[in-house]
Computed example of a mutant assay.
Amino acid sequence: MPSSEFELDVVLLALAPEVDPRYERLYGYLQDDVNRRLPTVGLALDLLTVTARERTRRHFGAEAPLLGRRVLRLEPDPHTEAAPVADRFLVLDEQIVDVLLDQGSLDRRLTAYCELLAPPPAPLEDEALYRMVRDAWGRAPLRLYFQGPPGAAQRRTAEALAGALAVPVLAVDTEDILHDDAVLELIFREATLQGVLLHLDDVESPCTPALADRLAAYADVVTLAGSRPWAPTKRRPLGVLTVPCPPGEATRRRTTWRQALAAYGAEAAPADPDALAVRFRPSRRPTSTCRSSVEGYPSR
């Protein structure tokens, strides 16, 4: 995101047509060309700088924050061949536009891989795990690996954590994207911008270099789920903590509900027994599905 007042002003300049289309006519007038309905680098420098020393294009270099972090991109004028940098249009990334306009929805490019969920009010059964996540939330990076076989309720545990924190959860199916750095960048930025708990399903250890780089740069809490024991990456230490998730009580509850529904001839969607197992328990004292290995974790 912008790291200076100038960069913030550039973002607002590019955002204006998304707020009110009349800015397109204004930009055409200011640039003396009705076809230039978006602000250009030159217009930004004209409006936001005073001295020749300030009029530098370093803010629009490939490694500068605005472009390097893909907050915006520079698009050439389709009516001009080989347009210089000053004549290129400032176009905000649609993910940034959605967040700034408080759309509250998932980036459209991520819908094939992600779900943005408001978790059900299910109790979290591991107080030590909750305290650890609560203490790190918004303050320090924390990487938790929920290890267990399929059906061990790793995602349910992440949802319960998110519910305890009163935040949504961004659940990601990573099967097809573990090597796609561009998509992973969008996912991690989406989690940051939305202020949600990021949960990555189907992460097999050791993780890919692309995922390792994103995990290393992520400054908040992320949970991962996989079946094999976590193996440290060769590139850099990530400090991943393993939380064992045996197929215990949760699996038995789902089986019980499936058998009960079948006995009464009730038709149920595949997700219904899971939802019933989370909401309705056979005893007053719940047993943990994903039990952390940090039972003695102290409160701060």
Rank of each mutant, 00 (worst) to 15 (best):
P270T: 09
W137C: 08
L43E: 03
T49I: 01
G265L: 01
E204L: 14
A153K: 05
E190G: 10
T56I: 06
P232A: 11
V50T: 15
A266Y: 10
R252T: 07
R25W: 13
I187H: 02
L161H: 03
P298A: 07
E185W: 07
C245L: 08
D180R: 08
V278D: 13
A16Q: 04
L92T: 00
P149A: 13
V240K: 04
A263E: 02
R109I: 05
A160V: 01
L124Q: 02
Q103S: 12
W230A: 05
D46V: 10
R108V: 14
Y29T: 15
L215C: 01
A225H: 02
A128N: 07
E24V: 08
A225M: 09
V294N: 01
R253S: 02
E81C: 10
P21D: 01
V222T: 12
V10T: 00
R134K: 13
V71E: 14
Q147E: 14
E18R: 13
P65N: 07
H59R: 13
L186D: 06
L193F: 09
A231F: 10
L106P: 05
F89N: 03
V240I: 11
D20H: 02
L193I: 05
G151R: 12
L200A: 08
G28P: 04
S288C: 12
L170G: 06
L48D: 00
L215K: 01
S292A: 06
L200C: 06
R253M: 06
E81G: 15
R279K: 15
L261Q: 03
D33E: 00
A52S: 15
A263P: 01
P286H: 04
L211K: 04
H179A: 10
A182G: 00
R228F: 13
D33W: 12
